[in-house]
Design a protein around this nucleic acid. Structure first.
Lengths: 246, 246
DNA sequence: AAAAAGATATGACTTATGTCAAATCAGAAC
DNA sequence: GTTCTGATTTGACATAAGTCATATCTTTTT
């Protein structure tokens, strides 16, 4: 143990090639040769502590980021100080596209827990896109995904009841857990109730009550931040996915 | 007049170079030489009639589009048939990015009135980006803009009251009118009340009532679809833009 | 021009959720 | 371990906005 102490784990670089998130991340669909190119430009800064900002509204946009571990939330701020969380970013998910319009970020990005990210510097992105044919396509895919994601959220906020929103949120997390080959019916929430409420456009109290309701109805089990989905079908039924069984 | 009749106005191609929307559109910041390249690949299909679809959810994504005249709305559809309008696209504004993620559109795009669009085919986009250094950057700008726009909408749906939403909507239209060098305090709505309500996540009746309220308070004048903003400051005050005067 | 269909407006009433207040619980700091 | 602070839960009550019903006005169809 005393000798291990000298390994600075913060600076062990994980290569894209070795990373088990690579298929969810920038390198999606890239060849081994292309992966080496990615590795050469991807930077891995020191981990963020809980409540550290990755970037803030107004910061000039230097890079796009991929979460490697932990969870990062992004939120917009209105003129009168209201804040709306627009995304919770899990490992393998990207953020920073908000800076593309004007070269300046229009969101705050904040670590919900100790988190590490990979950085793809924008000044290298341009060149890299010329060298790696796959990357340009992947960039478009990523941006399309962000847009589609936002659209789903708009539908959620515009048309769904509180109950449907929370069910929808849990299902979204569940399917993202599955993508990562983690348990899709049992996971920990990295965000407080307040953040869930904000994200879903409702009051904290409503989130609390709905968790209690779902628990009473044996749809989920809630223990603090630990969620177990007991009846996936009923959860899906709530949001109106009509497939009774696949 | 009898001789003019033979000119097929639908097929008169407007070059990017001549287009007075160019600075809002793809060609933003391009040189004259670059504009010629754009012209070579930009297609101008026949105008859409009111209620024609430009594309539908599930269609394979062939191009991105710029509105040249009229107005096109985009909307997402949920599994249970709910529909959420996610954008009203005015001349010079782009749409079609929703198809970037999977090569398939995830929105419906529908003309609210007779409208014409320009098409930038995706298969040409790739090559064009290599030739035109400005275009790749512009593509990123466009996508960033879309993301930022969606974030603003999320804030609106998540945090604002009905009154704030409608005021916000009117101000957004107003500033977009100004961008186009049209009157910013007097314009026609191309969408029915029902669409405004859907977009803003409220009931039609609420939109009606709020228009009546704003009118009574002499903030705006409403005549059918014709809106006159009488007191821009108060409208801004409603959404909480704290700048009493610039 | 009349009739039909659709869009908009307005009133009466209901309800999903928000707000306020208080109690409980968990984790951090000392 | 005790205290303190912040997170979560729960209850009582208030309200913004939805729903339903009806009337009016516009536009399209015949």
């Amino acid at each position: 143990m005393s000798s291990l102490k000298r390994i600075d784990v913060d600076h062990l670089k994980v290569s894209c090639k070795e990373c088990n998130l690579r298929e969810l991340c920038f390198p999606h669909g890239m060849s081994d040769a292309e992966l080496l190119n990615m590795d050469a430009v991807v930077d891995q800064p020191k981990p963020l502590h809980k409540n550290d900002f990755l970037y803030r509204d107004g910061d000039s946009s230097r890079a796009i980021y991929a979460v490697r571990s932990g969870c990062v939330k992004t939120m917009t701020e209105s003129a009168n100080g209201d804040e709306q969380i627009v995304g919770f970013h899990l490992p393998g998910e990207l953020l920073g596209l908000d800076g593309f319009a004007e070269g300046v970020h229009t969101c705050n990005a904040l670590a919900l827990e100790t988190s590490s990210v990979c950085e793809l510097p924008l000044n290298q992105l341009e060149n890299l896109c010329h060298v790696l044919p796959g990357l340009q396509k992947q960039m478009r895919r990523i941006m399309g995904k962000e847009v589609n994601n936002d659209h789903k959220l708009l539908l959620l906020l515009g048309k769904m009841t509180a109950e449907e929103r929370l069910a929808s949120f849990l299902l979204s997390l569940s399917s993202r857990m599955e993508e990562r080959h983690w348990k899709d019916n049992e996971f920990n929430l990295s965000m407080p109730r307040q953040d869930i409420a904000n994200y879903l456009g409702m009051a904290v109290e409503t989130v609390s009550r709905l968790f209690a309701t779902f628990q009473n109805e044996k749809i989920i089990d809630v223990d603090r931040r630990h969620i177990t989905i007991l009846d996936m079908q009923r959860l899906k039924a709530i949001v109106g996915e009509c497939d009774t069984e696949l």
